[in-house]
Every structure is written in structure tokens, then in C-alpha cells.
């Protein structure tokens, strides 16, 4: 099987569908026309840019460039995690907790997968390293953002319960244990659902892509299974870590609940 290259005309035809949809929403006065067109334009520009960057990266495969790309991806993901919090930690912690736990989980799992499972030569071969890291970071980011958001919201709402437990002689960890469990659950649920529904409800995007590119379905499936397990491990590790660190940061050394360490985010 050969990969069928898409021409500019093919893409224009697809774009026409979005333009038609935008026209339809304008006609129906639903007010989505502008958003659709802007988002569509962003897709084209952003993806073309990434395509060019990846092409350059593949042509000049050097560890330094791959590392730089990885750091930029991490920096952006860290910002996204912070921006999605309704109540986030004040100061550097707001950025740090997400970025550090993502670095530990997503990077560790990616390096582990590259060196022991996939095994390209060299192990940081950009064709494998960058897409793998991208998928892991993307999913870990969502998990951590959901987990942290749920944690700070629940702790804020249940502060009387937490202080009631503290006053009865509970440790900070005991006082916040139910909120922590709920937050970890909330961060991991999308990943668990994706594993459970894989192949039945939807064909995962990466597998679909490989099949379209001409890979035998069973090979594509093997990659997909590997990726899903890696994503689960990375997201789980990252979410649990972030929720634990954040819950610790909500208390000081005398185990007092310190909600003053949170500040309202831009969405509240």
C-alpha cells in the first residue's frame, strides 16, 4: 500500500465544508461563523508550521534540537495546565506543580518507551521521540489539569470539613484524603474511559493515521496498545504526583489549611 498524497485542491475542498458550515450558522443566526473561521484558519497555520518544524527537525536529527523542541512543548503544556485552573496556586507554584510533574511523568515514560520498547537508533530519533512525547504530554496535561482543578475546587468548597477534621486531631493528609481521591479519579477517568472504549466506540486517532498511511492494521493496533498503556502510565503518574504535591502545598509546616496560597484564575 502507498500513502496517497493530498493536493492543495483536496484540502481546499475540505475547507469548503467548514466555510459552508460557517455560512449556515450565520444564516441561522447562531453566531458561530466567526469562531469557526478563525479556528479553521488557526488549524491550517499552526499545523503547517509544526509540519515545517518537524520536517526541519527530521532533516537535522541532533539530540540538542530534539531536546529544545521537547522543552518548548513542556513549557507550553505547563502554561496550559495553569491557565485551566479556576483557583491556582499563587506565584511560581501555579506553574511549577504542573510543569514539574509533567516533566517527571511524561518524560520518564517517553524515555523508557524509547529505550526499552520501541528502540529506534539513536533512541532520541525525532520521528519517534517527538510524536510519542507529544501524545504523552497532551494526555498528561489534561489529566493533571483536571486533577488539580478538582482538588483546589473541592478543598475550597469543603474547607469547613477539612478544618473540622484538623480540629479533631487529624493530620493534614487524613483531613484531605477524600478530596485527594476525588481529584485523582477526576484526572484519570478520561484515560480509563478511553482504554475501555478503544476500538468499539471509536478508532483511536493514531491507529487510524497509521492505517491511512498504509500500515497493516495489526501493526497499527500494536502501536496503539503500546501508546494507550504509556498514556495511562504517564497520566496516572503525573496526576497522582501533581495532586499529592498540590495537596501538601495547601497546608503549611504546622498543618494549617492555607487557602491564601490560592488565587482566583482568569475564568472565575
Amino acid at each position: 500500500m502507498e500513502l496517497i498524497s493530498l493536493s492543495a485542491l483536496d484540502l481546499s475542498l475540505a475547507a469548503l465544508l467548514v466555510v459552508a458550515l460557517a455560512g449556515l450558522t450565520v444564516w441561522a443566526r447562531m453566531g458561530l461563523g466567526r469562531s469557526l473561521l478563525i479556528a479553521g484558519a488557526r488549524t491550517v497555520i499552526q499545523l503547517l508550521l509544526v509540519g515545517l518544524i518537524l520536517q526541519t527537525l527530521f532533516d537535522h536529527a541532533q539530540l540538542g534540537w530534539v531536546a529544545l523542541m521537547a522543552v518548548i512543548m513542556l513549557a507550553v503544556a505547563g502554561y496550559e495546565v495553569m491557565a485551566r485552573q479556576q483557583r491556582r496556586f499563587a506565584g511560581l507554584w501555579g506553574y511549577g506543580i504542573g510543569a514539574v510533574t509533567m516533566f517527571i511523568s511524561a518524560f520518564a515514560v517517553t524515555v523508557l518507551a524509547l529505550t526499552t520498547m520501541v528502540g529506534p537508533t539513536p533512541w532520541w530519533e525525532p520521528q519517534y521521540a517527538i510524536p510519542l512525547l507529544g501524545m504523552l504530554l497532551g494526555n498528561t496535561m489534561t489529566g493533571i489539569a483536571l486533577g488539580l482543578d478538582r482538588l483546589t475546587q473541592t478543598v475550597w468548597r469543603e474547607r469547613r470539613t477539612i478544618e473540622g477534621r484538623l480540629a479533631m486531631g487529624a493530620s493534614w493528609s487524613e483531613a484531605v484524603t477524600t478530596m485527594r481521591r476525588e481529584a485523582a479519579r477526576s484526572g484519570l477517568m478520561p484515560t480509563i474511559n478511553a482504554m475501555a472504549a478503544a476500538g468499539i466506540v471509536s478508532l483511536p486517532g493514531m491507529m487510524t493515521g497509521q492505517i491511512l498511511a498504509g500500515a497493516p492494521p495489526v501493526e497499527a493496533v500494536k502501536y496503539q496498545i503500546l501508546i494507550m498503556f504509556l498514556i495511562t502510565a504517564g497520566t496516572g503518574l503525573g496526576t497522582l504526583g501533581a495532586v499529592w504535591f498540590a495537596s501538601r502545598r495547601l497546608f503549611d509546616t504546622r498543618e494549617r489549611l492555607r487557602l491564601d496560597r490560592l488565587k482566583a484564575g482568569r475564568h472565575s
Binding site: T161, E163, R165, L166, A167, T178
Partner: peptide, 15 residues
Amino acid sequence: WRRRVAYVPAETAWW
């Protein structure tokens, strides 16, 4: 400390 110096708020919390 909090077991020995017990704080009972006006509205007690129940979880």
C-alpha cells in the same frame, strides 16, 4: 496540639 487544645466552632462540621 489540636487534640489537647480543642476548638469547637459555632457551626460544627460533619463529613
